[in-house]
Design a protein around this nucleic acid. Structure first.
Length: 255
DNA sequence: CAGAGGATCCTCTTGTTCAG
DNA sequence: CTGAACAAGAGGATCCTCTG
């Protein structure tokens, strides 16, 4: 899907990209071979072509940082096909919504197979090293919450990986609402104990733990584990369906 | 060649939506 | 309960295509 992306080139917006797809220009290779008609002059065409060539070579070199910088947050999910199998799924719990006033309590990180959890006062500082080698981070609404919050917590931390925020592709598929609502729609299950817990309850569970209730921490960790592990099937659903919708669509029949 | 009309880029503003 | 990014829409700019 990243090989079909043109909107990161200058003077290419979503209408132009859609037109290219409709005309059968589905990949960078198609573009360079067929040199399709564009409603731009020679200078701009040259700039677009250079971006396509550069993208092709950056992908061949495995340079995920290039695409992390180049693609808008809402388009980064398109790289799931290339880096999704080495992605880290991420979800955080905090003491509230304001990153100046509140702080991180738990970070859940799943590598596609196993979940590791970092706890404030125990091993939270090991998180930056654990995420640093991943080419891709997957979240739900992480563009607006998780990543900025972590950035405020560790000002020196730089997220250089591609960030697939599943909120945008899922909404594009018509699945609106928050994570829990979308899970219900898609039939993604939760365990009995965590089924009725929501975001603000995580705040209260941490407070209970601070007052000495160890069971509250266990429940908070179980809730966080569910949140982060449910991102895995959501990612596959989002990518498979949106890719099919965009590239599987046949051009209009002639005649 | 010059001018009109059309397409679509970029930028700015406003309202909505999620996260704990 | 806050803050950030998107969507949608308007305005300005650029550059293509079509005519005569």
């Amino acid at each position: 899907m990243i090989r079909s992306t043109f909107v990161h080139a200058p003077w290419v917006g979503y209408p132009t990209e859609s037109r290219l797809w409709r005309e059968g220009v589905r990949t960078w290779d198609d573009f360079l071979e067929r040199n399709p008609r564009l409603r731009v002059g020679t200078d701009r065409r040259r700039a677009i072509q250079q971006e396509v060539e550069r993208s092709r070579s950056r992908l061949k070199a495995g340079d995920y940082r290039y695409f992390a910088r180049r693609l808008k947050p809402r388009d980064q999910w398109r790289a799931i096909g290339e880096w999704g199998d080495r992605a880290m799924f991420l979800d955080i719990e905090t003491t509230g919504l304001r990153r100046n006033r509140h702080h991180v309590t738990v970070i859940g990180l799943n590598d596609g197979k196993r979940t590791r959890q970092f706890i404030e006062g125990v091993d939270l500082d090991e998180f930056p090293a654990a995420i640093s080698k991943a080419p891709m981070v997957v979240t739900f609404n992480g563009s607006r919450f998780d990543l900025p919050f972590l950035q405020g917590w560790w000002p020196q931390l730089r997220f250089e990986q591609i960030h697939a925020d599943l909120l945008y592709p899922l909404h594009a598929l018509g699945l609106s609402g928050g994570l829990k609502e979308i899970e219900t729609t898609l039939g993604v299950e939760r365990t009995e104990e965590t089924r009725n817990i929501r975001g603000y309850d995580a705040v209260k569970l941490w407070r209970r733990f601070e007052r000495g209730d160890e069971d509250a921490l266990d429940l908070l960790l179980e809730y966080n584990r569910q949140d982060v592990e449910n991102l895995v099937p959501l990612m596959h659903h989002a990518y498979r369906n949106l890719r099919a919708r965009i590239l599987g669509a046949r051009p209009p029949a002639t005649g």
